[in-house]
Simulated assay, not measured.
Amino acid sequence: MAGNRDRFSTATRLRVLGAQTAARVYRSQTRRQDRRSRLTGRAAFLALVVCTLVVALAYPMRQYVSQRNEIADQERLTREAKQRVEELRDEKERLQDDAYIERLAREHLHYLKPGETGYTVIDPGAKKREREERGAEDRPWYSNVLEGVDNADRPDSPNR
């Protein structure tokens, strides 16, 4: 009976040892699941915080970028205006020079000095090209004006 009792105590011990091992494994799995669920909750909270920050900062960032673009445009316009002012100052200085004024008058107004002979060259094809560009027929200019006045009230008029 002593052998039976040893076997029983060994079997009992094994059973108790197996139960303890199973309990340890169960506790380990439970801890892992708790840790996972805690990490999942933390991750969800972190994701929520990040999304909130992105949404909260999106509009101000868009405004910032927009304002930076406007500033760059205004700076460009300022540079162009300064350049135009310099050009006008240079032109003003040139207009103080009598020789420059004389040259402009001769070029644009066809002025001549006493004793000079002026020539005007007429391009024979210029009148034809002008008519083609405007679509005018070979008739006096006032006919085209009167026709335009007559056709102005028509619904199918190209002038409308």
Results as ranks from 00 to 15, higher is better:
40 T>K: 06
40 T>F: 02
42 R>P: 00
43 A>V: 07
44 A>R: 15
44 A>N: 13
46 L>D: 01
47 A>Y: 05
48 L>R: 15
48 L>N: 12
51 C>Y: 04
52 T>F: 11
52 T>H: 02
54 V>T: 10
54 V>F: 01
55 V>C: 12
55 V>F: 10
56 A>G: 05
56 A>C: 09
57 L>F: 11
59 Y>H: 02
59 Y>R: 11
60 P>Q: 08
62 R>I: 07
63 Q>T: 08
63 Q>S: 14
64 Y>P: 00
64 Y>A: 12
66 S>R: 13
67 Q>C: 00
67 Q>E: 13
67 Q>Y: 08
68 R>C: 05
68 R>K: 09
69 N>Y: 07
69 N>A: 12
69 N>M: 05
70 E>A: 14
70 E>I: 08
70 E>V: 07
71 I>K: 10
71 I>M: 03
71 I>W: 07
72 A>V: 13
73 D>F: 04
74 Q>T: 05
74 Q>S: 07
75 E>Q: 11
75 E>N: 06
77 L>G: 05
78 T>Q: 12
81 A>W: 02
82 K>L: 04
83 Q>W: 01
83 Q>E: 14
83 Q>D: 12
84 R>F: 06
85 V>K: 11
85 V>G: 06
87 E>M: 11
87 E>H: 05
89 R>K: 15
89 R>G: 00
89 R>W: 04
90 D>V: 13
90 D>Y: 06
93 E>R: 09
94 R>K: 12
94 R>D: 03
94 R>N: 01
94 R>T: 05
95 L>Y: 01
95 L>W: 08
96 Q>K: 06
97 D>Y: 05
97 D>F: 00
97 D>P: 00
97 D>M: 06
98 D>A: 15
98 D>F: 01
98 D>R: 06
99 A>T: 08
99 A>S: 12
100 Y>A: 05
100 Y>R: 08
100 Y>W: 13
101 I>Y: 02
102 E>L: 14
103 R>G: 03
104 L>S: 04
104 L>E: 12
104 L>I: 13
104 L>Y: 11
104 L>G: 03
106 R>E: 09
111 Y>R: 09
111 Y>W: 15
112 L>Q: 09
113 K>M: 11
114 P>F: 07
114 P>Y: 06
114 P>A: 12
115 G>F: 04
115 G>H: 03
117 T>M: 13
117 T>C: 07
117 T>Y: 09
